[in-house]
């Protein structure tokens, strides 16, 4: 039992080490990627700050400093949300490289989780100077509590796990058809609108907020951000972590079930 747990940890650490070493070589490419991504929250931030100023200083209960804090933390959470995508599964299956992965002794999701987790370490390092520059430019304000920081540190990894599991489950669709871009697009649009990525959820109409509460999206995006800078109460922080735990469990069960059905359909030529 202990030996098997140790070998699991070993595989994760090895995958992480490989990712860190690989990705540190491509610092410029990683920065290009991150700068392209940072444009999105900066746009939202400017638009909503303009709206807040026109309304006398605040919109949806957030003033410009709080909006800045929200969208700066957004940039890290967005990066934590990048996982092995359904498009990656599409490639694996269409090109047959999945055959090789099936020969490995563990479920493929573990290698993906380990690799991307290692990449996150590089991303967090590269993010720190970007966050400093954004803070100088946009003057964020927030009340940060020790409990909020701890919750945030856990929640970003919870978010990473939920999104990895969900995206891989979605990727299982590619075992049946290899052109699923539009299906994914609909999913990503729902996620964009209901996660707190486009706007803080407090800016959405009530009925949208109620729907969002029942879906996994905001627990991977809005919740980690608000845990750090949203002034949530201890009950809200713990409640959010509980929702994350629930979605991790659901995601794991769904992926396990779907994978066992999907993999029977797999066939490849070459690869």
């Amino acid at each position: 039992m202990i030996a098997s747990a140790r070998s699991w940890v070993d595989i994760y650490l090895t995958e992480m080490r490989i990712a860190i070493q690989q990705q540190l070589q491509y610092r410029v490419a990683n920065y290009f990627y991150m700068i392209g991504m940072i444009a999105e929250p900066v746009i939202y931030l400017v638009v909503w700050t303009t709206v807040a100023e026109q309304q006398g200083g605040a919109v949806g209960g957030l003033d410009s400093g709080e909006l800045a804090a929200y969208y700066i933390v957004w940039t890290l959470v967005r990066n934590m949300n990048i996982v092995f995508t359904p498009f990656g599964w599409e490639n694996r299956i269409r090109e047959g490289t999945f055959s090789g992965e099936l020969l490995r002794p563990m479920h493929p999701i573990h290698y993906d989780l380990g690799y991307f987790a290692g990449w996150k370490v590089v991303v967090i390092l590269l993010w720190l100077p970007l966050a400093a520059v954004l803070s100088l430019l946009f003057h964020p304000t927030a009340t940060i509590t020790p409990l909020g920081v701890v919750t945030f540190a856990i929640a970003i990894w919870g978010a990473y796990l939920i999104r990895s599991l969900n995206q891989s489950s979605l990727g299982m669709v590619t075992f049946w058809t290899t052109r699923v871009g539009p299906v994914f697009d609909i999913y990503f649009t729902a996620e964009l609108l209901l996660s707190g990525r486009l706007v803080p959820m407090s800016l959405m109409p009530d009925w949208v907020q109620q729907i969002a509460w029942l879906l996994p999206f905001q627990w991977t995006f809005g919740f980690p951000i608000e845990a750090l800078v949203g002034g949530l109460s201890p009950e809200q922080l713990l409640g959010g972590l509980a929702m994350q735990a629930l979605w991790i469990a659901i995601g794991a069960v769904v992926l396990r079930r779907m994978f066992s059905i999907a993999v029977r359909r797999y066939s490849a030529v070459g690869g």
Binding site: A29, N30, F32, I35, G36, M37, I38, A39, V47
Partner: peptide, 21 residues
């Protein structure tokens, strides 16, 4: 000069999105 440039698409599309406003 920099051989791996695939991320350039992300960079450009990210910046281009600012054109919505």
């Amino acid at each position: 000069w920099i051989v791996r440039m695939d991320e350039i698409v992300e960079l450009f599309m990210g910046l281009y999105a600012s054109g919505r406003w």
